[in-house]
Design a protein around this nucleic acid. Sequence first.
DNA 1: GTCTATAGGTGGATAGAC
DNA 2: GTCTATCCACCTATAGAC
Lengths: 185, 185
Amino acid sequence: MILDAAERRAQVLGFNGFSYADVAGELGVTAASIHYHFPAKTDLGVRLIERYTQRFLAALAQIERHPDGAWARLQDYAGIYERVLAEGRLCLCGILAAEYETLPERMRGPIGAFFGANEDWLTAQLSEGRQAGVLAFEGEPRGVAAALTGALEGAMLVARARGGAEAFVSTSALALRSLCQPLSP
Amino acid sequence: MILDAAERRAQVLGFNGFSYADVAGELGVTAASIHYHFPAKTDLGVRLIERYTQRFLAALAQIERHPDGAWARLQDYAGIYERVLAEGRLCLCGILAAEYETLPERMRGPIGAFFGANEDWLTAQLSEGRQAGVLAFEGEPRGVAAALTGALEGAMLVARARGGAEAFVSTSALALRSLCQPLSP
DNA sequence: GTCTATAGGTGGATAGAC
DNA sequence: GTCTATCCACCTATAGAC
């Protein structure tokens, strides 16, 4: 699948780090053939972000079906990032955020929307957890949500540059526990 | 100065996001002239990282001269990131970390070393602060240090993609207070 | 839908004059 | 040190045959 090959490359090399020829080569076709499905690279980029966001939100919805409480859900959230990094990838929108100023306008809005959706979901979990008395944290839920997303994105970035996907596990766990404490009633 | 122009572009657009012609244009010379000073772009890249790291460490040394205690130093540390983002830039090594897999080998080591130096300095401040009884945090100083660097790098990245350098200020402050609490004896 | 062929542009890099 | 001129590789994109 074109999107699968392009997505993997974008998560490893960035959007500007791969070409139509690269994707075509993996699929055993020519670059012109990719242009038939995605006339401009911007079209491919927008589609990549849309699909990634959809899948991410689907994973979050799946987590919500676990009736294990807010704390377990936050751990599952961090687990998504952990599995992505274990595959040698970064978060698609994280790496695109680094390339933000070089990307076409049409791709920028959806990237910001991805982080917005992350914060929305986390805000909901944090609010619910505090309400239920199983989570404690400082300040407004939305602020903690923003800090959490940032901490995980940054930890991925740094962990890859230092060669340790293992380091991410302990760093993300510490960041999660520090930003938000589980209560045992 | 070549390095100044190249550094600014690298912090905004990434290392692959600018060309010799771009830098030359700003300086009113030709690309060939830049090649005289930096034969290959890799040479320029390595030099950029070295200089950035040197300046960063100098700023940290300057902070240590403030006798205001460990907590104030950590706030000053976050302040460095804040001022960089206020100029519309990212941390040079943060944006290079996103491009890591596309960069030549000679640039990779120094990027990891930058983060290592950050962690070393933070670890020293955290250890001293805990020893002096003015800081409280969970686990080992080095783990908190890694989480702090990651949180600030990630917060910068996300803040820029969401249009708010102001959002970074509150997010970084929250991350700092959550990862490490000041004690008032 | 996929191919070949190609246009048009850009980027890194070098040679040699000044 | 900086210039002009040039090379070569690569990338995005399109036209048109199959």
